[in-house]
Amino acid sequence: MVHGLLHLLGFDHEVSKVAEEEMEKEEEHILNTLEWRGKGLIKSAYDIATVMEHLQNSVEADSNIEKVILQEKHQPKLSHIICDIDGTIMDYEGGLHEKSIGSLREAIATGVNVIMVTGKSRASTIRTFKLLDFREKGDFISETSPGVFLQGSLIYGRDGKKVHRAELDLDVCKEALLYSLKHRIPLVAYCEEQCLTLFEHPFVELLHTVHNENKVKVMHSIEDLLEYSSIQKLLLFDSTKEDSSVLRQHFSELSRGKAHVIKMHSNTIDIVPLNTSKGGGLRILLDHLGITKDCDLDSIGDYTRWLSNK
């Protein structure tokens, strides 16, 4: 009734915010004079509107939370991890990197697929992980697993089938073998899974006893070694106490335009076919598997930077 009388007197709360506040104030004054203990109509309407707004906001907030939870539930989980061995799973002396191994175990336990990208042979990689006893997923690295090996010279795709094989230039191999014999520099030739050398040496033996490569076979001559099979990688040890930089410089000049020389450690170098690398091999494999840049990839080891720029 008071609200209606105020309208008759010319008050109108719908004209503006100021008019609303003026009418509300007058309404409350009259009601207080009449000792009315309730609220005025404008105040009641305002409070109801405020409550309704809060409820609406609450409903929207709950809805948004549900949407976020739903999105998180349906977020594509990590699908593939790229992993190296030397410097990642173990150091160059054969010591284990427990933190990396722990991360890998956690990923495998959730069903993430592991793609090995390494300078080692496939046989060495399989043997290494069998010794680590990854029971979470059985033989998750096997002869049927995809992977990049021998610095990208050998790539295996679906079902472990070979999809890429690069071979070292024959003249480069011959020169390296001659240098090895002349200077008694230990050398190992990788012919897929088989390792060959020209003479026994403690460093060569470590490939089998520490780094899990197949037993290195000693060949009687350079000719016998070259006739055995094509070579994907040469590994040379600098058996002196000097840094392998001198060895690398010599073979970089010797193989210029024919092969790629990589300094792997303070006393070793790898010689691989020209335009061959682990990163390049990984790109070939991902294309083969249909894994695009939109897939959820992560890495343990050397490939974080490459993946961040994919």
Rank of each mutant, 00 (worst) to 15 (best):
G281S: 05
Y190W: 03
I300W: 02
A176C: 06
T88C: 10
P186L: 08
S255E: 09
I101H: 02
L168G: 02
L170S: 10
G279P: 03
E20R: 12
I108G: 11
Y190M: 12
E60F: 14
Q71M: 13
L234W: 07
P186H: 07
K258V: 01
K120A: 09
D84F: 03
S124A: 15
I69V: 12
K99R: 15
H260R: 14
T240D: 14
R135C: 06
E60C: 11
E227R: 05
L131I: 13
Q151K: 05
F199V: 03
K43C: 08
I300V: 01
D169A: 06
S244Y: 10
D91W: 03
T209D: 08
D12R: 10
G38T: 02
L132H: 06
A166C: 08
K310W: 15
N113M: 11
K67H: 15
W36M: 14
G157I: 01
N64P: 05
L8K: 12
L168T: 07
S299Q: 02
F149R: 03
I284V: 14
H80D: 09
T268S: 10
L104I: 02
E20S: 09
E192S: 01
S100F: 00
Y156L: 00
K293S: 10
A107W: 07
S79D: 13
C83G: 00
L150V: 00
Y190I: 01
F129Q: 04
V172Q: 06
I231P: 09
K293L: 02
V59Q: 13
H7L: 14
V117W: 04
L96C: 08
H288R: 14
A61E: 14
G152H: 08
L34A: 09
K120L: 08
E167I: 09
D243C: 02
S16W: 00
S16C: 03
F129G: 08
E35H: 12
L154R: 01
L41K: 13
E106S: 06
Y179R: 06
E66Q: 15
E53F: 09
A49V: 11
N267E: 06
T292M: 09
L285R: 08
E223S: 07
E167H: 05
I115K: 08
M264I: 13
S221H: 06
H74L: 12
G301S: 00
